[in-house]
Design a protein around this nucleic acid. Sequence first.
DNA 1: CAGTCCATCTTACTCGGAGTAGGTTACCGT
DNA 2: ACGGTAACCTACTCCGAGTAAGATGGACTG
Lengths: 199, 199
Amino acid sequence: MTTVKRKRMPRAEREQQMIAVAEQVFTERGYATASMDEIAELVGVSKPMLYEYFRSKEGLLLACIRQSRAALREVTEQATAGAESAEDALRLGLQAFFVFIRERREAWSLLRHEMALIGTPASDEIEETRRQQTDLITSLMSGHFDSEDTLRAEASAEFVVGACERLAIWCERFPEVTPEIATGYAMDLLWTGLSQRAI
Amino acid sequence: MTTVKRKRMPRAEREQQMIAVAEQVFTERGYATASMDEIAELVGVSKPMLYEYFRSKEGLLLACIRQSRAALREVTEQATAGAESAEDALRLGLQAFFVFIRERREAWSLLRHEMALIGTPASDEIEETRRQQTDLITSLMSGHFDSEDTLRAEASAEFVVGACERLAIWCERFPEVTPEIATGYAMDLLWTGLSQRAI
DNA sequence: CAGTCCATCTTACTCGGAGTAGGTTACCGT
DNA sequence: ACGGTAACCTACTCCGAGTAAGATGGACTG
């Protein structure tokens, strides 16, 4: 767009630029509808360069997902590092998550939407992101919960991740629901359950 | 495959057959990898017939999703019809859901995996399925909960749907987790919350 | 500063699958 | 028996993923 002079640049830098553009395009058009030609054009480079660096369209998507995942991990681990109790850890982690998805809508959109591609490397990659989160939750909880029933513990972690993922998507429709409010909803439900609110 | 004599058949019947085959193929190969030629061949009919009846590849996917959704709705509505309390309704609904996804793996797989296609009709269709479930939950709960805070009520419903969706996917990896056990996990977490299990 | 080397980059293709134009045939009602 | 139409087919176009083979800028060497 703005770049009139397409200069050569070192591989690492070009890769980052490509990922940034791809993240944008995939999010806007959707993976299926996005074309490699368009991404190449926006980067200001020819299509074979994309293939040189990422092997395939899906490879490019993978790179985007991996980057988002790393960012999410960074954020949630930092946030929960100093927690004392399970309740505290949960709250801090939830808060970090809901802030992340608000601040980095594009990254989140990728993780959220591009889940088709069953049987392809990309679906594994998305699942890996969730596994990262469930592992984190499981380990956070392990010190604070009766952990006899490991199956139940795993189920709980999955449950939490699914619930929050869905809640996050819902939040997008309501700008007035701040990360703080979302965290509050999630904590209430997770911690005290629905019974508290039954008449 | 087995059909040696490809006979003509009325539209409605052919449509059903096509949907059945498509559901299978989409599930096995994934939407992106599946080809209309292959589906047509398996049905024992030529490709333009698929387009005549479903307009596009995505239209065919839509038909599959709609059918699954109708089945899911049928099952959950039936199950919760006679519930007395909120707790009861929740339990019966969850049970019906977990039984459904076990018995109809293919249908469920479609709803579960084919979520790419952001901005396309199919993504709306998937969301519509979730909305169906959240609406059901909301209406089930409306009589039993303090409904001043509608935003919170909606959030709760989304939360429940997301949690159960994720839990259902997790269950696939553990055949020993029966629908009954899954329902138990979900009820415990939803109703009494995590605090009950904290040390 | 001329020459060499190679990472970066390009043009110009192939190939497979979505979607379509236009014609053909079995079946049903009269 | 004989239209009429719903069901069906052959034979294409077109678009986008992926690739083969070659061109070029610029860093480093003598």
